[in-house]
Design a protein around this nucleic acid. Structure first.
Lengths: 153, 153
DNA sequence: GAGTTTTAGTTGCGTATGCAACTATTTTCT
DNA sequence: AGAAAATAGTTGCATACGCAACTAAAACTC
C-alpha cells in the first residue's frame, strides 16, 4: 500500500473532490426544480427496492443509505409520513423494525429516476468514454471495498 | 455530447458516488478524532492561502469553497471568531468585505494538512496507480470545467 | 436462571447549510 | 442628476444530519 502522496495523486484527488460537489449540487438542483425529493430519499427507496421483499431492517438500510442510525430514523419518519414506506415489526426480533417499500414508494422512485438519470448523463457520463467508464468503475469499486473493509476490520 | 446513459457509465457513476461519501466521511472522522476543524474550514482557509495577499472577497470565496453566500457568511463568522481570518473593508466597494487570512489561520492549515494528506493517501491514493491518477485528474478536470461552464452560461 | 453486556432503534440537543427577505451600496438607464 | 435595477453581504427561518444518552429486547456469563 502506497504511503506517500505523489503530486499526480494529489491532483487527482482535488479534481475528484471538486467534481463531486459540483455534480452532486447540479443534480440536486434539477430534482428540486422538478419538485422531487432529494437524492437521500432516492438512495433509501432504491436500497429497499433492491432488497428481498422490498424491505430492510433499519440497520441494514442505514448502511446502504450512508446515514447514521439517528439520521435514518428521521428520514424513515418522513418517508412513512409520505406513505412511501411502512414500518413493520420484525417477528424474530422485537427490538427491530423493517422498513417496507410501498407501491407509492415505487411510484416516486419511477418519478425521480428520469431526472436523476438525465443529471448523471449530462453532468457525468457525457464527459466519460466507454473505456474510461470501465476504468472508473473498477478503480472506485476498489476504493469502496477498501473503505467497507476498513469499517469492519 | 452523449445523450443516453449506457450501463457501463451508470456503474461508473454508482462507484464514484458511493466511494466519495465513504472516503469523505473517513477523512472527516480522522480530522474530528484529531480535534481539528472539518474540511469545509480547510477548503476556505486554503482558498485564501492561495489568493493574492491571502485575501478574497466573500463572493469569490463562496465560489471557491462551494458554499452559498449565506453559508459562507456563517462560516466566516466562525473563522473570524477563532481569529483564523479577519474581515477587512474593501476601499473600492463599500458593500464588499475581504476575508483576510491571519498567521493563526496559516498555522491551522499546517495542522490540518498532515491529517488530511494521510487520509487522501490511505483512503484514495493507495488504491490508484500513477497512470490512473493521471487519467482521473484529466477526466474529472473535464467534468469540473463543464460544471463551471454550465453555471455561467 | 438472574445479572451483565450487547444490540436495535429513538430522542434531545447542537451544528451546518440553503432560500428568501432585507439593508446598503453601486451601476444603469433615461 | 434622479429613478430603477443590480449586486454584496447579512439575517430569519427551515431542514438535514450526527453524537450521546436513553429504552427495550436479546445474547451472553457465571
Amino acid at each position: 500500500m502506497r504511503q506517500n502522496l505523489p503530486d499526480g495523486h494529489l491532483k487527482a484527488w482535488k479534481k475528484y473532490y471538486a467534481s463531486f460537489w459540483r455534480v452532486y449540487a447540479a443534480i440536486e438542483a434539477d430534482l428540486s426544480a422538478a419538485k422531487l425529493p432529494s437524492l437521500s430519499w432516492y438512495d433509501a427507496l432504491y436500497e429497499l427496492y433492491l432488497a428481498p421483499d422490498r424491505r430492510l431492517r433499519m440497520n441494514e438500510l442505514a448502511r446502504g443509505a450512508l446515514l447514521s442510525r439517528s439520521g435514518l430514523t428521521r428520514l424513515v419518519d418522513k418517508l412513512v409520513g409520505e406513505k412511501l414506506i411502512e414500518r413493520v415489526a420484525c417477528p424474530e426480533d422485537r427490538r427491530a423494525q423493517y422498513a417496507q417499500l410501498t407501491a407509492r414508494g415505487v411510484e416516486v422512485l419511477r418519478q425521480i429516476w428520469p431526472i436523476y438519470r438525465a443529471g448523471i448523463t449530462r453532468y457525468f457520463a457525457a464527459h466519460v468514454s466507454e473505456n474510461e467508464a470501465k476504468q472508473v468503475a473498477a478503480l472506485f469499486g476498489r476504493i469502496v471495498e477498501a473503505a467497507e473493509a476498513q469499517k469492519t476490520g
